[in-house]
């Protein structure tokens, strides 16, 4: 096995072009588990740790934020909680402090597990992922087009994930996750909501609910139309929203839960997070008035 240590983004792209079979490693919280248990024997490890560009974030002129793939969860929580509340909430539920000190959104995207906690809030908030190769340059992939199957993403063999971009936060965002403990759990299922009140639009993201993380489009459209954006949340509307979220899932039975339980729990989380978000939305509207 080779251990490649590029010290800049250009060097990293060159290394990946020359050795497409090299396995990138950032926090190592997925990669090292597989190495320790002999699941994988990659021909080479490509350590992106020394690539400083990946560990930085910047606000862009249009108010959106571009976050390097290598910013660990702990920094995302400490530095970006106000700019991406949904993602920060999800980050707080990842593993343990030690895991959050090392684990990154870039690694979550690379692993592309349907249970990865970063995916639902990124989908709900309308994220795009910036990937790059030495030969083809930069591609921006909308979150909705990135997940292709269980642990499969749209990355080409010579590409690396550079960053993710999120539009400016336009309203309340929430994340909720079901597990057996308040720490160290892979989601039985998870849900994220984002409201865009000025556009009267809703974003959703579902985790551990199908072979890939996904949005519940029918639920989003229903809520955007049926809700009274200037009034209180109607219980029947919230209930129907929950049903439509559950219906968008195609979950499986496994050791963590049955398909039926997951569908039910998704509906409950959808109603609950919607209530929290609507509460904030109304409070915000009243404070502005």
């Amino acid at each position: 096995m080779d251990f490649l240590r590029p010290t800049s983004w250009e060097e990293a792209l060159a290394a990946k072009a020359e050795r497409p079979e090299a396995l990138p490693i950032q926090g190592g919280t997925d990669v090292m588990v597989e190495l320790n248990f002999g699941v994988h024997r990659p021909a080479a490890l490509l350590d992106l740790g020394p690539v400083r560009e990946l560990a930085t974030w910047e606000p862009l002129p249009d108010g959106s934020v571009r976050v390097g793939a290598g910013v660990p969860y702990a920094r995302l929580i400490a530095e970006l909680g106000d700019r991406m509340p949904g993602l920060a909430q999800a980050a707080r539920t990842v593993g343990s402090p030690q895991i959050r000190n090392r684990g990154t959104v870039g690694g979550n995207l690379g692993a592309a597990s349907p249970a990865g906690d970063a995916h639902p809030p990124l989908l709900a908030a309308g994220a795009a992922y910036e990937v790059e190769s030495a030969a083809q340059g930069v591609r921006s992939i909308p979150a909705t087009e990135f997940y292709l199957g269980v642990k499969r993403n749209a990355l080409r063999p010579d590409e690396l994930i550079r960053a993710f971009r999120l539009p400016p936060v336009a309203g309340p965002q929430y994340f909720s996750k079901i597990g057996t403990r308040n720490a160290m759990v892979i989601a039985v299922c998870s849900f994220s909501i984002a409201l865009f009140p000025s556009e009267r639009r809703v974003g959703t993201g579902l985790g551990s609910a199908a072979p890939t993380p996904l949005r519940a489009y029918a639920a989003e459209e229903f809520l955007a139309d049926a809700a009274d954006w200037d009034g209180d949340l109607d219980e029947a509307v919230a209930g129907r929203f929950g049903e439509l979220v559950g219906a968008a899932a195609s979950p499986i039975d496994d050791v963590r839960g049955t398909a039926e339980y997951r569908r039910h729990a998704l509906g409950v989380m959808a109603r609950r997070t919607l209530a929290w978000a609507w509460n904030d939305h109304r409070k915000g509207a009243l404070e502005c008035a």
């Binding site: 251990f3 490693i25 926090g27 190592g28 190495l35 350590d47 740790g49 030690q98 090392r102």
Partner: peptide, 19 residues
Amino acid sequence: CTVYLDGVPVCACLVAAGQ
């Protein structure tokens, strides 16, 4: 296996030696 790496606690079992 928790150790400090540059002052930050991490699981040493999940850090590749080369890192």
